[in-house]
Design a protein around this nucleic acid. Structure first.
Lengths: 155, 155
DNA sequence: TATTGTTATACTCTATAACTATA
DNA sequence: TATAGTTATAGAGTATAACAATA
């Protein structure tokens, strides 16, 4: 049996590098990975309540409060009264936030190209399919594990 | 020009899934990603001073103090006097820590196999090479960026 | 009664700076 | 004088629980 190449190790390595790269890119901007993730959802979803953001990001409502506080005080997002529900806020991007997301889209596209520089089209295609397979498998395994451990509290 | 498949998005997705999977796996064990990383280095390097661990993990000495505190109180690692330098500690795995690392090695190998289940050998080979290329590129780009921004403080 | 967001509290990871003991 | 590790302090992300205002 041939040795399986260390796919997992390479993924973990790529993870660490991406994380480091993002931290470096954000440094001095007032942004962080978590805050940017929220901005990104706002960009994707449009103006949203904090509850919807909490669901989209899969974090607690409390966490969203803190992130929005930070983004508000650094000028990337703002809270406005919700038009029909006076309990809720309508969180939206400021012009500065929009601009940051536009830049981020450009950087993202550029990095996507740079990563595969030196590979031919077919190689990129293989890589893309392989990655899709692997993330699919990961998702299945997590699902299984979650279902199994979730079973305990099923009556 | 053909559209570049979203390699970066897929890597980021895999990252997020791996992170979630690790968090799930550690839950209830007293371990966390950061603590396990330290244990792993201890497993790799053998008994070490906190300074060497700080270098190996690329974090501050203070951070290592906290992680070792936690690992000591949960029984995975221990501090012993350093034989020749009375300022330093010799941090090592306890039997429980050794066992945890042995399990982790098995889980790691199993996951490595599970991720590529359904791909043939050639596909795995392609994926592996593609990933190696991409992480290499990432490393180059980070290096460049670091050198460029590091330049400012060069006189 | 249920939901939205806040305050209160707590834990984890991380960092820098000041300090102690030792080299 | 330099180094190993600690205490002090701080910021960021995260969580749960209790609570206020509103639905």
């Amino acid at each position: 049996m041939s040795d399986t190449p260390p796919i997992l190790d390479r993924l973990l390595e790529a993870s660490a590098l991406l994380k480091a790269d993002m931290a470096r890119a954000f440094e001095g901007t007032g942004l962080t990975v978590a805050r940017t993730h929220l901005l990104w959802e706002l960009h994707r979803l449009g103006p949203s309540t904090q509850q919807s953001l909490a669901s989209a990001l899969e974090v607690s409502a409390r966490n969203v409060s803190g992130l929005v506080d930070a983004l508000e005080s650094t000028g990337f997002a703002r809270r406005q009264p919700h038009l029909t529900d006076r309990r809720a806020f309508r969180v939206s991007l400021t012009p500065q936030g929009e601009q940051a997301m536009a830049e981020m889209e450009r950087d993202h596209a550029r990095l996507t190209r740079q990563l595969v520089e030196g590979l031919d089209e077919q190689q990129v295609e293989h890589l893309s399919r392989g990655l899709a397979h692997v993330t699919g498998r990961l998702r299945e395994l997590i699902d299984e594990a979650t279902r199994t451990s979730g079973t305990e509290q099923r009556r």
